[in-house]
């Protein structure tokens, strides 16, 4: 058997995704450093906003603004970030339940591992120039309450 032929190649495109009204509204609000969700048929507030109710499949169109602060309901620690990950330094992925939302969202948390815990309070760290992407929330970080540093 002759020597194996191997070659690295990149499979990729930059896709242009039309957002539709719900995702578009969420991203538009993000650009102004605001976070909105949609209210489901059972009253639950989904953040990011779901376009369709996960139980009834009906189109959701009632928007609810929620806080950019909330609580970690689960987290994992990325000790060795992958090339595709948002940070080169160790960080956490977390399920963050924002104040005013009923369903947690997945995003990154930048904090020392020792500080990470379920129930910890976090706040959004906004990117310097929000452009209407989920990454306008650069990550969440430990909440700083008034009077603190």
């Amino acid at each position: 058997m002759s020597d194996l032929l191997r070659q690295q190649f990149v499979l990729g495109y930059t896709y242009t995704r039309s957002t539709g009204p719900v995702v578009g509204r969420f991203l538009t609000e993000l650009r102004q450093r605001k976070i909105v969700g949609t209210r489901g048929d059972d009253g639950r507030v989904f953040v990011p906003p779901m376009e369709f109710d996960p139980v009834t499949a009906s189109a959701l169109d009632e928007f609810v603004e929620v806080s950019d602060r909330g609580e970690v309901v689960s987290w994992c620690w990325i000790s060795e970030p992958r090339d595709s990950h948002p940070f080169d330094e160790p960080f956490a992925w977390a399920l963050v339940l924002l104040d005013g939302a009923d369903v947690p969202m997945v995003h990154a948390v930048a904090a020392p591992e020792a500080e990470m815990h379920t129930g910890m309070r976090v706040q959004a760290r906004w990117s310097e120039e929000p452009r209407g992407y989920i990454t306008d929330i650069a990550c969440f970080e430990p909440e700083v309450t008034q009077g603190e540093g």
């Binding site: 191997r6 990149v10 930059t14 995704r17 957002t19 578009g24 991203l27």
Partner: peptide, 22 residues
């Protein structure tokens, strides 16, 4: 209002030619 976003999806593969192709 945001109506579209550019989403780069680039994945790196180590492609191997099959035995016969090799």
């Amino acid at each position: 209002d945001i109506t579209a976003i550019e989403t780069p999806v680039y994945l790196t593969y180590n492609f191997t030619a099959g035995e016969a192709t090799t």
